Simulated assay, not measured.
Amino acid sequence: MSARRTVVDAPLVDAALGRTPSRMPVWFMRQAGRSLPEYRKVREGISMLDSCFRPELLAEITLQPVRRHDVDAAILFSDIVVPLKAAGVEVDIVAGRGPVMERPVRSTEDVQALPILDHDVPEVAEGIAGILAELSPQQALIGFAGAPFTLASYLIEGGPSKNHERTKALMHAQPHVWHALMNRLCSTIEAFLRTQIDAGVDAVQLFDSWAGFLTKRDYRTFVLPYSQRIFDEIAASGIPRIHFGVGTGELLGAMAEAGSEVMGVDWRVPLDQAAHRIYATSGPKVLQGNLDPALLHAGREVVREEIARICEEGRRAQAEGLARGHIFNLGHGVLPTTPPEAITEAVDLIHREGVFRSCVMP
């Protein structure tokens, strides 16, 4: 049974659905995290994965940046490997390295033995209920899951990889193993997203961290069908769907075919150029992005100028019929060394009436 609430005049939801928002919506990936002293305090002595399965802590961390920065959406505090952990996969997040698998998956037998999440995750659902109880009807909650390619890479490599050589080798040399693995992962990701949707999130983002290491040909053959499957599975919910990958400028057109309403753009591609690439394969979509996270260290004037430039690119794409809207974000996540006051100031600049007018069509 869905806990869907009614959002009223929520800028992010309005923009994502192609409507004119009351103000330029903004949220930042990794806004709930290491840049905030209050986050470090509540996480003392608690591992990352444990934090994701403690409902009260999950809710508190998710809400911290909304209270501090006045962003238009909370992003569910989670990690790409949380659905694997919930399914029963032995995985840990090692400080300074990232997710590490106890047993890599590299054969048909390994794939067949990989647990599939086939139930709700009650800790996450309870955490979402706590978040929604505090958010106003104008503030959206975005659900989150890692895309199947990124999860597959972690499983095959056994952890983070600079080159993804084992992943690419298995993909090409043992395609039957690859496709079997991707199908199992889709089932787990779909179950994890269903938990979030049934609990009442207002939008979801599918995050493909490592897709940028692929050629367009390989992406279309080995990855796109599975991202499409996930977006198709959750389409009936009616909530906006966001797709984002890092270093995926050359893949934007292909990624847009997966079916999301919103396409995230990293900082490497100007927003109006990204709109051309997306439009060529899928028609106009809402754009999300794309301030370079490092520039939040550069001072108010630099940030103000970059915000104005990005907004103008978004406005131009809309004026030319290449985009249906613009949600402001970074081109990836908030860096842990970012001063919290710089984030608050950036949000304020984005929300200012003069900046907002330059970001939307008359």
Rank of each mutant, 00 (worst) to 15 (best):
A3D: 15
V7S: 13
P11E: 12
G18R: 06
G18S: 08
G18T: 11
R23P: 00
W27L: 11
V42Y: 11
D50N: 06
D50C: 08
P55H: 03
T62A: 02
D70N: 15
A73Y: 06
V81H: 06
V81P: 07
A87Q: 06
G88V: 10
V89K: 02
E109V: 11
D120H: 08
I128S: 05
A129L: 12
I131H: 04
L132A: 05
S136Y: 05
T150Q: 03
T150P: 13
N163R: 15
N163V: 07
K168G: 00
H176Q: 15
H176M: 02
N183S: 08
A191F: 08
R194A: 14
A199D: 13
V204H: 06
D208T: 03
S209F: 01
W210L: 10
G212K: 00
D218E: 14
D218G: 01
D218S: 08
T221W: 13
L251Y: 01
V262R: 05
V262Q: 12
G264A: 07
V269T: 14
H276I: 03
T281Y: 07
D292C: 13
P293F: 04
G299E: 11
R300Q: 13
E301N: 13
E312D: 02
R315I: 00
L322S: 01
L330N: 09
G333R: 14
P339A: 12
E353T: 14
P362T: 09
